[in-house]
């Protein structure tokens, strides 16, 4: 049980990078971008092919991010230059990328169990430094060694990678260009009226968004030990679920807080996922349905709570008014 949770946190951190990408397109640019389903696999496919070909895994991972960046830029161009509705532009890219991904991979599935991946490099590096001994010490100290994971290297390295991505993103979104990007999503015609080529910002924003998605895909295939052409199915919904859960549970207005909330949202999603898998009557194949239900609930419930709160308040004030009226009448009667 506890070990499954460690696994959930690990995947949560890896998929958090994808969720940050979705946050840029969905929340900052207000562009519901379905490219994600394709670009996630594109990133993974490029990384897998390069790793199998013997490329340095760090370079392969970055190449995956660049592949995602290119895919995102194309979606942005379809929307801005081609005047295609955002949803449709994303769907078109998602479909097109399916074929592109198969071309890149050459086969629907690439196993990479014995390849040198980013994680195998990290693992041997980690073991040579005997860092597990340091991390397990507190567990031994409290006497709960059974609850400790087998190794800490994935969690620690993913925390580091996710935080680096978060910090870079925080910094970028507060630069002059980053502020303009956010304003473009907020009020495009206003930004235009201050002499800014908003199309450029939309294309660049979509590129950055999908670069993060591609990076996440590249990390996921290395973590899984294989790349699969169907890996991206429903990825956008997982991203949305993470963003929305994060916003509802941890969200605040500030950018720094929002990026953290998205990362935490992704972890919470994975924890819910792994818990749901432990319920007897649910099967792994039900997960897409559960994900959809989580997103629907996260979208609908806050709204309903708000409404019922307003309703209660209205009833309360009405009752209070009624009471005052009764009292007033009583007083009136007594004076007569």
């Amino acid at each position: 049980m506890i070990h499954a949770l460690y696994g959930a946190v690990e995947s949560g951190l890896i998929y958090a990078i994808m969720a940050l990408g979705v946050y840029i397109s969905f929340r900052i640019l207000d562009f519901p971008d379905l490219t994600v389903d394709g670009s996630f696999v594109t990133g993974g496919a490029v990384a897998a092919v390069m790793i199998v070909g013997g490329t340095n895994p760090v370079i392969a991972t970055l190449a995956g991010a660049i592949a995602g960046l290119l895919a995102g830029c194309v979606t942005g161009l379809l929307h801005t230059k081609g005047n295609i509705n955002p949803l449709l532009a994303g769907i078109l890219m998602m479909i097109a990328l399916y074929s592109v991904n198969l071309r890149i991979m050459g086969q629907p599935n690439i196993p990479m169990l014995n390849e040198t991946t980013l994680f195998s490099v990290l693992s041997s590096w980690w073991q040579s430094l005997h860092l597990d001994a340091i991390f397990i010490a507190p567990f031994e100290w409290i006497g709960i060694t059974d609850f400790a994971p087998d190794t800490f290297y994935i969690i620690v390295s993913m925390i580091v990678i996710a935080l680096i991505v978060k910090k870079l993103l925080d910094f970028f979104l507060r630069t002059e260009a980053g502020i303009t990007l956010r304003a473009t999503g907020d009020n495009q015609s206003m930004v235009k009226s201050f002499s800014t080529n908003t199309n450029l910002y939309i294309v660049a924003g979509m590129g950055i968004s999908n670069a993060l998605v591609g990076l996440s895909g590249a990390l996921v295939v290395q973590h899984n030990g294989f790349a699969d052409v169907n890996l991206g199915v429903g990825m956008i919904i997982i991203g949305l679920a993470s963003v929305i859960i994060g916003e509802v549970l941890f969200g605040k207005d500030k950018i720094v807080r929002m990026t953290l909330a998205v990362i935490l949202g992704s972890i919470v999603y994975r924890v819910i996922y792994s818990l749901a898998l432990r319920v007897d009557f649910l099967e792994a194949s039900d997960m897409k349905l559960i994900t959809a239900i989580i997103v629907i609930a996260a979208l609908v419930v806050p709204n309903m709570l708000e409404k019922s709160k307003a309703k209660r308040q209205f009833k309360k004030s009405k009752q209070a008014a009624l009471k005052r009226k009764e009292k007033g009448e009583v007083q009136h009667a007594s004076t007569e």
């Binding site: 630069t175 002059e176 502020i179 930004v191």
Partner: peptide, 26 residues
């Protein structure tokens, strides 16, 4: 104006008329 952004960030955008935007702190 952009409603989701702060007053100073909005002011920042209006500077775009006079100079190119950089990757420095906004």
């Amino acid at each position: 104006t952009a409603p989701g952004m702060t007053i100073e960030e909005n002011m920042m955008i209006s500077l775009g008329r006079t100079k190119r935007r950089s990757l420095f702190k906004g």
